[in-house]
Nucleic acid binder design. Sequence first.
RNA 1: GCCGCGUUCGUCUAGGGGCCUAGGACGCCUCCCUUUCACGGAGGUAGCACGGGUUCGAAUCCCGUACGCGGUACCA
Length: 505
Amino acid sequence: MKSNIRVRFAPSPTGMLHIGGLRTALFNYLFAKHHGGTFILRIEDTDQNRYVDTAEKDITTSLEWAGLTVDEGPVQGGPCAPYRQSERSALYRKYAEQLVEAGHAYFAFDTTDEIEAMRERLIKSGNPSPKYDAITRQSMKNSLTLPQEEVKRRLEAGEEHVIRLKVPRRDTIKFDDLIRGTVSFDSGMLDDQVLMKSDGLPTYHLANVVDDHTMEVSHVIRGEEWLSSAPKHILLYQYFGWTPPVMAHLPLIMSPAGGKLSKRNAEELGIPVNVRDYVKGFYEPEALINFLAFLGWNPGDDREMMTMDQLISEFSLERVSKAGAVFNMKKLLWYNEQYFRARTPEQLLSSLKDWIVRHKDDLDDAFITTFLSHTDAENAAVLGIMTDRVSGIHEMADNIQYFYVAPGAFKPEDVAKAWKPGSSELVAAYVERVAGMDPFEAQPLHDALHALATEKGLGLGKLMQPLRLALTGKTFGPDLFEFLARIGKEESLERLSKALKELVA
RNA sequence: GCCGCGUUCGUCUAGGGGCCUAGGACGCCUCCCUUUCACGGAGGUAGCACGGGUUCGAAUCCCGUACGCGGUACCA
């Protein structure tokens, strides 16, 4: 049996999908799926000025990457199509006029200059927050003050106008929010919200209410920035005679610098705000989802790692917290490592290949060709050795290069750290011992070094560091002996003798 | 300014009157493992914003203060 739980994610295509938007979408999705309900994507493109035509595609692909499957939306269609507000214009006009007829809204002909003048006048006379409301509308040009004949004439002449909501002068508007409990507002604080703009398109408030009702949305789950406008929506439902959906206002995601996460106060701190950047970067989608789910929600026990299926079965709005949550980059990185390390070598290989394609300009050509000339099995084996030593696919590409190509110039700081006086003699002595070794395998290579260390009365580490530097050009990396065996005797000896020549000490 | 919402370790959070000497996770620190680097394991560090009530008893309930955040558009 199909659940009648229906929720929607309703972004405005004004730019790339924001990380906070993805979190809102995720909570909607989890709630819907938990109840066997429907997850709707609705594009709220009623602002022609801020419209960005690549935005919708970005939203769609980002949701897909994150694993949030849309049930009804512009791409998949559905019983309430169309799912773009720009394609539903006629509907809003009809409902707005219905409200005018019922006496809950009115036509207004004031120009923006006239409204501005009214506000300035009020500010001057000591009113700090002037509104177009039950009091001021009496002195403005609208269908409540103008003679009926004139209103009709202006309308028929096609004069520019808006339709405004007739907010009562004094009334308490109360509603129950699933997350915040009972919330109440005084209608005197609201202004006569514009419902239909002069360009013929609805404002968010009207379109949102009409669509949520006509699409039979049962729960409105959105960010806390909407809490203040919720009373307008409640009023609208009341005037239309519709039952409002259940409201749930999610706590906002905050920047460590304070305030809600915005491009400015987040990206300076290394926190990408566009989901796009996570998709293109080294992030595992499961990690981002797990992290985001735990921003304002938790299962109530000590679990930290949860798959999408587990999140779905455990999710409930009752467990969503009220306070804003600061985005903790270090924790995201930790989640990313966890999911990254849980990948099989085969999965790693495929994501590394994607990574290489995307970053081929930043990577060494010789490395790429050599890498691609190896079999998948060989490459996967290399990745398997490295997963526990790097934290993400981005580091993988940088840290396996020496499996394929000899290191280039040594970095002075690495040399200072790993190549000490006497290192040359030790490396030369090791070369001597393994040059004739056959087969060239990890265990005997290890034993040889061990013997050398014992003879010289040194710790294995003293020998290991310069050898590692000479062979890989790095100061950390995988088990050296396995590494030697993998690149083979010829290549190993070649690298060591080259290093011996370059690193005099 | 006004309206609304919020406030437990640095951060994410558990907690719904006695089980709290406030638990977990990230971070940070120490130790163990590894004669490298990591992974891993074991510990440690650190918090109920403040002030009044209510109660035998309050992190938990009520009031106030402070602070933070959101809103205050013909933007969403």
